[in-house]
Each structure stands twice: as structure tokens, then as C-alpha cells.
Amino acid sequence: MNALTQYLLRLADTDMVLAQRLCEWCGKAPALEEEVAMMNVGLDLLGQARNWYDYAAELLDDGRDADQLAFRRNEREYRNLLLAEYPRGDYAVTTAKQFFFDVWHHRVLTRLSGSSDERIAGLAAKGLKEASYHRRRSTEWMLRLGQGTEESHRRLADAVQNLWRFTYELTDTDAVEDELAEAGIGAGNVGDAWRAEVSRVLEQAGLDVPEPARHFYLDGKNGKHTEQLGFLLAEMQYLPRAYPDATW
């Protein structure tokens, strides 16, 4: 599989897995307004996932379509960021998770909207409008929870601590990303901008900024995941796997 296809699958899988985690919130959000907002963010991400899958499927040209890429690949083939698969937890975990992702996503799509690959540039520019709203929303919630009550502060601090170890995937790049960045196609490394913005918001929320996270064994971008992803996929892929000849 060439670098571009891998890169597209990483983007698609990350959006897909995050959207799936947001779907788990259905009927369980802390307020009706948040039901609407989380479903809205999930819809945006799923729509973006579909666009990236479509493009990846064309490049792969092996007869698989977007649905087959989403619903028929197993956990070793999935290339999402580890952060995305982390269980939804309480609202602090979901808030911190979305926030870390949103800052990264916003930077990545900003750069991709200037990609030399016109298809990528077009999709990124469209996604960027959505990602800007997501980033604004999750930043606001970081401040609300960080500065809100003692309990919300404590929960958010715990969430940041638990999730932080996965953030090296947002700040470090691998050979695939470097190759595409050099070719003017990929977003390259957005680590510095990510760290600066996240630190600023954490400080504003009254939270400590941890030392930069370092790579440790797991590698979501290349299919080496936590134990959580298998269960997520088992649920999400149940129908297409159980009825392989069905049309939905």
C-alpha cells in the first residue's frame, strides 16, 4: 500500500472511530443541548471519514468500496490514532479527547487545504469549517470544566492525565507522513503548534501542562492498538460481518 493510501486511511479511521465513540453517547449526554452537539460533531466526522475512504478506495482499486474499508478491516489493519479509540468515559474524558484531537485536526486540515493534491485540498477545506467549530466548542468545554467546580476540575485533570500518554501520535510524525509532507501532499508535523495551543488552553483551564508524551510500543497509525479497538470494531462491524452477502 502506498504512502498516500495509508495516510488517507489514517485520517478516515480516526474520524470513523471517534464518530463511533460519540454514537455511544446517544441518549446519555449530560443535557439535551449536548445530545444535539455531540451528534452533530459525530455526523461531521463520519461524513469526513466517508470522503477519505472513498478516495482511498479509488487509489487501492482492488474492488473494495468505502463501506468495505470501514466495516471489513480488522484491528491490525485499522490505522486510527490511539486517542480516538480510548473509551468514552465520563464527559471530562470525552471533552479532553475531543479537544486534543480537534486542535490537531484543525491544524492538519488547515495545512491539507493547501495540499498539492487537489482532491485532498478540496475535502480538507470543506472539513476545516467543521473542525473550526469543533475546536471552538471543545475549547469552551475545557474552560468550563477546568474552571467550573472542584469536581469538574478534578475529573478533567484525571482525564488529561489518562489521555496525555497517547498524544505523541499528534506531535510526532513517521516516515509515511514525512514523505508526503516533502511531496507537498500531507500536512507534515503540526506538533509545535499543537503543543503551544494545548498548553495555553490547559493553563487557562487551571491545569498542569504535562511533559511531552513519548512513544511507547503502541502505534495506532500502523495498526498496533490498545485492547479497546477490537471491541469497538466487533460492535460496529457486526452486521456486515454476520451477513456478508447482505445489501443494506
Partner: peptide, 9 residues
């Protein structure tokens, strides 16, 4: 379970 979130807001 969402009470603490609304209280924080």
C-alpha cells in the same frame, strides 16, 4: 450522571 457537568457550566 450529567449533573456535575451542568453544575460546572
Amino acid at each position: 450522571e450529567g449533573r456535575w457537568v451542568r453544575d460546572a457550566a
